[in-house]
Design a protein around this nucleic acid. Structure first.
Lengths: 190, 190
DNA sequence: AATTATAGAATGAACGTTCATTCAGTGGGG
DNA sequence: CCCCACTGAATGAACGTTCATTCTATAATT
């Protein structure tokens, strides 16, 4: 009888602690304490720390996708859809700094590289962004560049400015986000 | 009598191993072995592992700066100088994958965040890039955005594509680099 | 001979994981 | 309605490993 409620507690604790102190600054004992559970109990819910970390990411991926897809202007022009996605991403990140820090750590680790590799080699027809860029290319609206480069031009800066905001190197507001997202569009558009 | 030659061996070993296996996959004993030295000896040259890591970064920073500044077209238009810096950065990274991986790890860690904070709060008049953007702003050539955002638009994608190349997700050649750097210019120019 | 550098074993702290034990909840027999 | 046997979730001390760092005996240098 595995309670989903306890599982969520553990994921939440892992998220908080790893976001705050990194993978290696968040020992299982500490995660257990934060979750209100004994160290051994975690192993009833997750096979290992690795699995716990990956499941925590899966949980976040769901959240992010839901946030980006909310009120997605399906059928509207490429540019409008691009701006929608971009703004949603930045707003999700700066509204969820803990989640942002976790995801960033995740991607800058062997976990994340493996994850990216799968995604790039995997089916592209389910990825809303890849779809969007491909359509833009076909319509000659977007520069004819390999997909990973378009991703880098469009989303690299957005992640960077989200981090800078969270670290308080800058303060983003709606206007600044608007301008930056527009600049990213300048980078990818023909 | 501390031999500089041995110091460099140790830095080289730290660089290779940390680039390959991360900070936590590169124990002092392994660095020592690679450097052809005993574990304890490292401590005659570096106070701690932390210091060794930071000194390794300082060493790389020198290398990178030298690479970027070689044949810098001082006095030429903003756009030309921008393209020079951008191309030099990408070429340095893809020509030195090990160095790239180390620097990336360094910046995605508490070391790097501290380092960035210092740099952003420190004197800007010595930073060639900040200088360039500021001049571009004054001349109305570059968008009027905070410096960290211009950095993100210009260099974020370059780092991303360098990583993608090193991980073999894409294959960069001179033409592709040229196109991408031009796209970054589109992002920052008015 | 005296001083300093090096090697590598020793140390102790920290970690992920395991496992013998405890505990709470359930159901069946009286 | 009570009692007791049973189940399996939860516990947390203990284990084995790994690591940075220190210590000490030895080698090299002056």
């Amino acid at each position: 009888m595995v309670k989903p409620e306890k599982r969520e507690e553990i994921i939440g604790a892992a998220l908080e602690l790893i976001a705050g102190h990194g993978f290696h600054g968040a020992p299982m004992a500490m995660i257990a304490e934060r979750a209100g559970v004994a160290a051994g109990t975690i192993y009833r819910y997750f096979e290992s720390k690795d699995v716990l970390i990956r499941e925590t990411y899966v949980f976040l991926e769901g959240q992010m996708l839901a946030s980006v897809m909310a009120r997605y202007p399906e059928g509207k022009p490429v540019r409008e859809r691009f701006l929608h996605i971009s703004k949603k991403i930045v707003n999700y990140f700066i509204g969820s700094p803990m989640e942002f820090r976790f995801v960033e750590q995740f991607f800058n680790s062997p976990y994340g590289v493996a994850c990216r590799r799968e995604k790039l080699l995997g089916r592209k027809d389910q990825d809303i962004c890849a779809e969007l860029f491909e359509e833009g290319c076909r319509l000659q609206i977007i520069k004819d560049l390999p997909l990973p480069i378009l991703f880098a031009l469009a989303f690299g800066p957005l992640i960077d400015i989200s981090r800078d905001h969270i670290l308080e190197f800058i303060t983003l507001d709606a206007l600044l986000i608007e301008k930056t997202v527009a600049a990213c569009w300048d980078a990818v558009k023909r």
